[in-house]
Amino acid sequence: MTLFKADNLAINFGGIKAVDGVSFDVQKGQVFTIIGPNGAGKTTVFNLISRIYNPTEGKLFFEGNDITEVAPHNIANLGIARTFQNIELFEHATVLHNLLLGRHAHRSGNLASQMLFLPSQRKAELAHREKVEHVIDFLDLQHYRDTYIVNLPYGARKVVELARALCTEPKLLLLDEPSSGLNTEETEDMAFWIHDIRNELGITVLMVEHDMTLVNEVSDRVLALNYGRVLALGTPSEVQSHPEVVKAYLGG
């Protein structure tokens, strides 16, 4: 079953075609990875999907619905979460508060009942807290629960951002270079978690990644981009042995 589909996506910045006629679809339960050399347009595709940029041409579909015009803040309500290459957390808040904000899209109730913190609100808050605790357990963040983000090491922040995305209970998780800035050991952990996110939580993952070890380990399908165009699409080994891909990476 197709969960997400990009159809003939294109965007121009000035006269430059950063992304040009990119089409692909992501099946439910897959880990789908976009690779490519620097400047290939990977992050641009990502920003198009998460609606930071408006495509010049083409359409995006999520669960069969056209989401090309959906505002970025409504992406979360649809069930799409994302992380950022350079980490975007609420730095002057604790890990717990960051994760609870991941529940924002699921909060309900009117202003008065919230201000008075009525029993119904209390109950809802406890349920949110429970969800958050599940994620904390899942990603082994117990130790950092009450730490302010500014005091966390980089690697831990990366995991917190992943945790916050999981707290939104997404159907599709967009990961922008999950291994960037991580050391080898942390990258191995990340591969392990992406595996579990798909297998245990059943969440479809669409990621941009350049660490080929991680890509090979977790991806079901790989899309190679260069100069904003699709070079190859297939299994990790198919794509890596594709002559165009080899040429793009090694030159020549």
């Binding site: 998460s50 505002a71 970025p72 803040h73 409504n74 992406i75 979360a76 309500n77 979460a81 994302r82 950022f84 975007e88 957390l89 609420f90 730095e91 002057h92 808040a93 904000l101 991941g102 924002h104 899209a105 909060r107 309900s108 109730g109 202003l111 919230q114 201000m115 913190f117 609100q121 916050r164 995305a165 939104t168």
Partner: peptide, 24 residues
Amino acid sequence: FTRIGVAMQAASQNQLAAYYMGIP
């Protein structure tokens, strides 16, 4: 306590992240 009030604090700390928590 309120959803909007917390959203305001979040948006003032990091707009980009706030968008992807579903905050307009």
